[in-house]
Amino acid sequence: MKKFAIHGFYGQGNLGDEAILKALLQEFSKFPNIKVVVFCSKPKQVFRAHGVRSVNSQGRRNFLRRIWEIKTSDLFILGGGGLLKDYGNDSSSLKEWLRLLKFAKKLNIKTALCAVGVENIRYDESRKLIRDALDKVDVITVRDCSSKDILRDIRVANEVKVVSDPAVLLTNINTDKLEDNLVSPKVIICIRHWFSKGFYIEKPEINENFIRSLSIAADFLIEHYNKKIYFVPFRTTSYDDDRIVAKQVVSYMKHKDKIYIHSSAPEVDEFIEMVKQSSLVIGMRLHSLILGTSIGVPVIGLEYMPKVRAYMESIKQSEYSLDLETITSEKLINKILITFEKYKERSQVIGLEISRLKKLASTNIEDLIELTNSVRRR
């Protein structure tokens, strides 16, 4: 029996990160000789959601258990998700994410970065932290080319492979349903607070323009295509509540009777079922785009951080990705018009690219397992 320890942003009420963990657990469960333990800040939530043994990654109280869990593991995995970034005014968040990885290396445990996103590295201290922590890590995979470029700029010496987000493995494209998707009255919108360097919006006037532009485009979908708009939150914590932004958009809309704001973030499977019954996904939330395209539904990306454009480029859909700093209602409506005019064409391109990403994600899992084939249990 092999034991894999996975450390990530799990149990925090973020649908995207839960989709990543769900996919990893799904793939590892195909191998009966692998058991998994998850390191996270809220182990009870992870156990309730996924039924997997979990350990608190923080605090002195669980220190000895963390040592034992890592020491008795065959592989320590950091990821997936956008874990390597500067958030706030110093490198403290990066230090926290790299702490257990460095500890596993000291114990001579096999280590891996799995489909991690890297962006917004602003401090020299952070660059050194990453460079030192990733030295001699056995496998490093990132979820997009821009993440690889950043690690190269930081002078990480190890081989870095570009794979894809594990969440692409959660569902399959059903080409027989494309016609049903096209005529579906549902459009899903997944938006969030727009901040890149802390819990505040740096340019309120640009954010206001984005809110108004989206409200006009949503009204256009209702008037021109007779759609119903579903705002689906990915997170609803006190400091990161997608419903607040949705209400701001709706406050400017004319057709409030055709709007539905979900009261809470759905489970991953529930969101997938919603997308299967929709004609379009418009998203800031990265995994609304990943899960949408994994089903074959066309998406329009709203770039609040580079990872959105990076994903859209990876599936040859960058022309349907809009920078929030320069967005206008005219630009967004134009992308909507082109999407419905070229619906089948877009779906076919997405389908081909998703097939490629699924192979990359599966190969990533296989490489992690292969890494432990020569490991003997201690």
Rank of each mutant, 00 (worst) to 15 (best):
N14V: 02
L15S: 11
E18C: 11
L25M: 06
Q26F: 10
Q26L: 15
P32G: 01
V37W: 02
F39R: 12
C40S: 14
P43F: 04
P43G: 07
V46I: 14
A49H: 06
G51W: 01
N56H: 00
Q58N: 13
R61M: 15
T72L: 00
F76A: 03
G82E: 09
G82V: 08
D90T: 04
S92R: 08
K102R: 14
T111A: 04
V139T: 13
I140F: 08
D144F: 08
D144S: 04
C145K: 15
I150D: 09
D153A: 13
S164W: 06
T171V: 14
K177P: 09
N181S: 15
L182N: 02
V183C: 10
F195Q: 11
I201D: 09
I201W: 05
I201M: 11
F210Q: 05
L214T: 12
Y225C: 11
P233N: 00
R235D: 10
Y239C: 08
R243V: 10
V249N: 09
E270C: 08
E270M: 09
G283N: 07
R285L: 00
G301A: 08
K307Q: 02
M312P: 02
S314C: 07
I315R: 00
Y320I: 00
D323T: 04
D323F: 08
E325C: 06
L332F: 06
I333S: 10
N334H: 13
T339W: 05
E345C: 07
R346A: 02
R356S: 12
K359H: 04
A361R: 06
S362R: 09
N364F: 03
L368R: 04
R378Y: 09
